[in-house]
Amino acid sequence: MSQLEELYQEIVLEHYSRPRNFKKLEGANRSAQGYNPFCGDKITVYLKIEDGVIADVGFQGSGCVISKATASLMTESVKGKRQEEAVEIFHSFHNMLTRPPGSDFDNERLGDLEILAGVSEFPIRVKCAVLCWHTLRAALEQKHQTVSTE
């Protein structure tokens, strides 16, 4: 599989065209907006937090394959997790994307997010993949301003 084929593999494209949890969440008690001025990607992440647990999560927005598919996979991975766990998943995910080319990474917490490992070969696209995570974190911290990857 070429780097490009890995980046645009079927399952990634499938999450892009049929994103999971792609909705404004009814009863959300946290939300935040993210914006990547470099490519014009916009995202809103909605959370329903109950006793420190992400009981439900949704997102809306427009963006490239990487940003949308990552957001879709992110919502699946953080649903039902404690807030701190979600942040730890983000750290593992970030480490996977920014690791030196060809090196291994710790996939323990990543689950399906591992299919995005190929993004690390496209450094300029890492921003697209972390936008939703920065936005999630802003929502967790209940920051109201728009976060930006620039």
């Binding site: 065209s17 014009g40 490239c64």
Partner: peptide, 30 residues
């Protein structure tokens, strides 16, 4: 339609083709 400019740019780049994708410093035009 249905394909973000950024993905177009990445795929073309893999073919050795350099184009620009984004707002080209003209956000009001977008």
């Amino acid at each position: 339609e249905g394909i973000h400019a950024h993905d177009i740019g990445t795929i073309l780049d893999s073919e050795g083709i350099a184009i620009r994708t984004g707002h080209h410093c003209t956000q009001p035009v977008m």
